[in-house]
Simulated assay, not measured.
Amino acid sequence: MTEATNPYAGKTPASVATFKSAHGFSVTVARLRGLLADKGMTIFVDIDQADAAAEVGMTLRPTRLIVFGNPKGGTPVMQANPCAALLLPLKALVWEDDARATWLAIDDVTDALVDGYGLDASIVEPIAKAKGLIEMVAAREPA
């Protein structure tokens, strides 16, 4: 699967990778959570943003923000530059568009960590793999 043109193309930074899921919203969220667990990632928080909107009397299409990471990969980054923690842990977004297609997005912070925070690419390498994990979740094949 390759990156798909999301309905908001041109309205997100170039670092945001977006993938159209071959699955419905609930299945995509379950696949994401399962794959992250299988890869030894910690899910720090799973925010149901549609539910939060409903709590204040507003509506939002199904939208979940999952904040995740692995301290074994993130700690060396933050040791090298504490301000890099502004980009960590990583975040994956799952949302349903108006046509009921499900999308996943991740902000690939690799370049920002290397170029903006001056980190060596070898330290950032474990974090760079996250984009591939999100792509796997979107694919038709089992994650």
Results as ranks from 00 to 15, higher is better:
34 G>C: 04
97 D>W: 12
23 H>V: 11
67 V>Q: 14
131 K>N: 08
117 Y>C: 13
58 M>A: 15
77 V>C: 02
140 R>C: 00
58 M>S: 14
19 F>D: 03
98 D>F: 00
50 A>Y: 00
52 A>H: 05
35 L>Q: 13
76 P>Q: 05
88 L>Y: 14
14 A>S: 14
45 V>C: 08
95 W>Q: 08
57 G>L: 00
41 M>V: 04
18 T>W: 05
56 V>Y: 15
4 A>G: 09
134 I>T: 01
39 K>D: 05
41 M>A: 07
119 L>N: 03
136 M>R: 15
115 D>T: 15
30 A>I: 02
130 A>H: 05
33 R>Q: 07
5 T>F: 07
39 K>V: 04
39 K>I: 10
118 G>R: 13
125 E>K: 14
115 D>C: 09
97 D>H: 10
113 L>E: 00
86 L>D: 07
103 W>T: 11
113 L>I: 12
73 G>P: 03
86 L>I: 14
110 T>L: 03
16 V>F: 01
54 A>I: 11
121 A>L: 04
29 V>R: 15
27 V>C: 03
70 N>A: 10
54 A>C: 01
140 R>Y: 03
110 T>G: 02
48 D>G: 06
32 L>E: 12
27 V>K: 06
133 L>P: 02
44 F>Q: 04
80 A>F: 10
91 K>E: 12
134 I>Q: 01
11 K>A: 11
48 D>Q: 05
131 K>I: 10
45 V>L: 13
8 Y>E: 10
134 I>H: 02
3 E>D: 11
107 D>T: 07
35 L>N: 13
140 R>N: 04
90 L>T: 14
65 L>A: 07
50 A>P: 11
88 L>T: 10
6 N>Y: 07
52 A>L: 11
89 P>L: 05
31 R>T: 06
80 A>S: 13
69 G>L: 06
44 F>S: 07
77 V>R: 01
94 V>T: 15
17 A>L: 08
37 A>Y: 04
106 I>A: 04
54 A>V: 10
39 K>S: 11
139 A>R: 08
18 T>C: 09
138 A>M: 05
98 D>R: 01
74 G>F: 11
116 G>A: 05
111 D>N: 11
84 A>E: 06
81 N>K: 14
128 A>Y: 03
88 L>H: 13
116 G>F: 06
85 A>L: 02
96 E>W: 09
132 G>H: 14
56 V>C: 02
112 A>M: 12
120 D>T: 04
14 A>N: 10
114 V>A: 03
49 Q>Y: 01
110 T>I: 08
79 Q>A: 12
60 L>P: 13
3 E>Q: 09
1 M>Q: 02
93 L>Y: 06
63 T>N: 15
59 T>P: 06
67 V>W: 02
72 K>R: 15
19 F>E: 03
33 R>W: 07
91 K>F: 08
104 L>N: 14
19 F>V: 08
1 M>P: 09
2 T>C: 04
50 A>C: 12
9 A>M: 07
137 V>Q: 12
80 A>R: 05
15 S>H: 08
132 G>L: 09
71 P>E: 10
